[in-house]
Design a protein around this nucleic acid. Structure first.
Lengths: 210, 210
DNA sequence: GTCTATACAGTGATAGAC
DNA sequence: GTCTATCACTGTATAGAC
């Protein structure tokens, strides 16, 4: 009576549920303490399962780590939709893009993820490529696409849309992200994000307005 | 016959020499593999001394780590002298500042140091403050000072010198440093640095030229 | 698949001879 | 101060019962 090609596991709490629980616990631990400082024992305890169960689902600590990171990277820019941008109103569009970018970039999860990846990319070189493509590259592509349409519409004087996108991102970031990564600052209040974005947009428009 | 207040140790090869050797070995190991992945045993072996000797000079792994980082941070911007900048020729001055900044920022040592600090600042919060003051803050202050003099000379239209300095640094950095940190790019050839700097200077001047 | 119990390697740190 | 040898401890991984 069920669908012929797809089988629904009757007890998802026991099968995939455990793996899910382990992944969630591992994510929390890794993001909070880093790779080296977290033991498989601690992950098992945090997930409420035995150590042997963890090893039943993941071949080892490194594989578990990779699974967590890959997952987070995918989630990273999932909610970005470039629909509501207007090439005619570049100020509003850049402000929208900027606020969204900074809101994500400075979020506690993103900061923790950056710390984790940058700290471990020396030991796991593949991490860099995975993260770049899932996060920064995708974001840069969306901003570049807007630069291109604005240049075509004549509302911005841009020769190199890719470079312009990178410079806009640079203006937005400044040293702010570094201060967050170094734990010298925190918080994503709307007023702060708006101020940072406004300054970047003003300078960018002053340089590229047609 | 010697100076009355200062005593020179006769055998600096035995006393401070060993500590120096240990610090050098620890620096190399930490920068290459990170804090968690390096054991005191490995450091002792790399320095050519016994583990007990390491503990005779440094109370523990964390103290040794702190000593290495503090040392590198100090070395970081030691050679920066803001003497040869000319407020009348802002293009040349910004180019000089930009090249020097990128040359340091993208150097293998600086990249490795960034990875190390960002990866461990979660576990050693004091690291963030120490690094910020020794490196980025000092650099930012020098650039800000130039912005102020150029604004006073009327060669740049700048309201907020600090913000302008931070935006200039942001334009220089773009996503380049991130790609280096993620191991997607490397190398500090003069041509590359010059191109990156020229793009940043052009956009900055386009926005702030008086 | 899941658990308890355990083997094993490697870690940070120390004691005692020289 | 420096070394050799060793300590206690933790984390990885597996065996065997259920």
């Amino acid at each position: 009576m069920g669908p012929p090609t797809v089988r629904i596991e009757p007890n998802e709490t026991q099968g995939a549920g455990k793996a899910e629980t382990i992944l969630a616990a591992a994510k929390r631990m890794f993001l909070e303490h880093g790779f080296g400082a977290v033991s498989m024992d601690a992950i098992a305890r945090a997930a409420g399962v035995s150590k042997a169960t963890v090893y039943a689902h993941f071949a080892g600590k490194e594989e578990l780590f990779g699974a967590v990171i890959g997952r987070e990277c995918e989630r990273y820019f999932a909610d970005f939709s470039a629909g509501e941008l207007d090439p005619e109103d570049v100020g509003a569009s850049l402000t929208t893009l900027g606020c969204r970018f900074l809101d994500l970039l400075l979020s506690p999860d993103a900061i923790a993820l950056h710390r984790l990846i940058l700290g471990e990319v020396g030991r796991f070189p593949a991490l860099g490529e995975v993260f770049w493509r899932a996060g920064p590259e995708r974001n840069l592509g969306q901003i570049e696409a807007f630069m291109r349409t604005a240049a075509a519409a004549g509302t911005l004087r841009i020769d190199n849309p890719r470079l312009a996108a990178e410079q806009f991102v640079g203006l937005l970031r400044g040293e702010t992200q570094l201060r967050y990564l170094l734990r010298l600052d925190s918080g994503t209040e709307r007023a702060k994000i708006d101020t940072l974005t406004a300054a970047a947009v003003a300078t960018f428009l002053s340089a590229f307005k047609g």
